Amino acid sequence: MGITGLADMIKEEAAEAVSSFPLEQYRDRVIALDASIAIYQFRMAMPKIVNRNGENISHLQGLFYRTLHLLENGIRPVFVFDGRPPDLKQPLLARRAEAARARRDAAEPHQAENLPRPLRQDCETLLAYLGVPYVQAPAEAEATCAALVKSGKVWCTATEDMDALPFGSLRLIRHLSSKRNCEVEEFSLPDILQKLEMTQEQFVDLCILLGCDYCGKIRRLGPKKALMLLRQHGTIEQILQNIDPQKHPLPDNWDLEGVRRLFLQPEVADPGQIRLEWRDPDLEGLVRFLAHEKYMNESRVCRRLQRWQEAQPQPEEAQPQQPVSPEAGRQRRLGEFFSVSKRAHPEVRGARARAQAGLRDRQGHILG
């Protein structure tokens, strides 16, 4: 859920803090992505893709295409996985689980919930083959993303939820996609605080009043009134002393201090202990995992990897040192690693062979 109505409020009250940029603007930047939110989008927003084993692999296809798209644009992604949800979030998760059972889709992961272990392991395996690092957060992924931004290890947080801002992420981008002309929306936390004339602590109070994942809302206190009262009185405690408790009753089990601590002093992975490294994708491993283990369409996998290869800058031509044999200089093909079944339809074999023949790295050898 994130923070109810926060994006709209910022656009109305602090419009200068929001910018739109083409994805190319983030070339050479490191971006931290909330893995659970991204995977939830792939599972729910994309058409369901079921392989021959009856597994829904839409999340793997989405993660594969989006990550390659980021890499092609010179962006270095790092995915952050949720840890144990805070105790204050358990009532919300229980309501979501009940709603899932009512819809008879309890097997599917839902936004901001821990991913089932097999699904998560598949995503980690895919990221490893893509050469992209991932981080395990001890609690909320957005909190660790924000800590990475504040430490300078990454440039911004990419997620659809606005929680990253009260957690302290200096920059948040939304609407990231694999579209060729993708434009993202960037929120600048320092600019938001300046335009709203608030401290980070007051901004957290505003997010609590708007509605968050960790507590209910004060009844009949809408966004405009909440902002007006906070500007006037400075803290939630002062607001409570100046509103009618009968008209604006507090929600049950309202732990204001506990929620504040979650935002201002969250449990996060120590950025100083995190080492981020990127490698070239393991092309052989990707085809083996996606096409041969998960039964994603092999021709599509190979074509997408070929596009990634063709987008890479070509190395400068080296001067030949001494003659080499034709066999030593021969470019190896993907078919040398994976034979084409003789029983496959000729058109399938042809498409597969054409895709495999073009899949070479920038030196002409398959990455192993």
Rank of each mutant, 00 (worst) to 15 (best):
D122P: 07
E124V: 00
L127T: 02
L127D: 07
A128M: 08
Y129R: 04
L130T: 13
V132C: 06
Y134A: 02
V135A: 07
A137T: 04
E140K: 07
E140S: 09
A141Y: 14
E142D: 14
A143W: 06
A143G: 01
C145L: 11
A146N: 12
A146R: 09
L148H: 00
V149S: 05
K150N: 15
S151Y: 08
S151K: 11
G152T: 11
G152H: 11
T159Q: 13
M162A: 14
D163L: 02
D163K: 01
P166Y: 04
G168V: 03
S169K: 03
S169Q: 10
S169Y: 14
R171Q: 12
L172W: 09
R174P: 08
H175L: 08
L176D: 11
L176R: 06
S178P: 03
S178A: 08
K179L: 03
K179Y: 01
N181C: 15
I192M: 03
I192Q: 01
L196G: 07
E197H: 10
T199H: 11
Q200C: 15
F203S: 05
L206Q: 07
L206V: 12
C207D: 00
I208P: 13
L209K: 07
L210T: 07
G211C: 10
D213A: 07
C215V: 05
C215S: 10
G216R: 03
G216K: 09
R220Q: 15
R220T: 15
G222I: 00
P223T: 00
P223K: 03
K224V: 08
K224I: 05
K224G: 11
K225S: 15
A226C: 01
A226P: 09
M228W: 14
L229Q: 07
R231F: 13
R231L: 04
Q232C: 14
Q232L: 10
G234R: 10
T235F: 08
I236W: 05
I236A: 11
Q238T: 03
Q238K: 15
I239F: 14
I239G: 04
I239M: 03
Q241K: 05
I243K: 00
I243S: 00
P245Y: 08
K247R: 15
H248N: 11
P251E: 05
D252G: 08
D255I: 12
L256V: 08
G258C: 06
R260V: 08
L262C: 04
F263Q: 03
L264P: 02
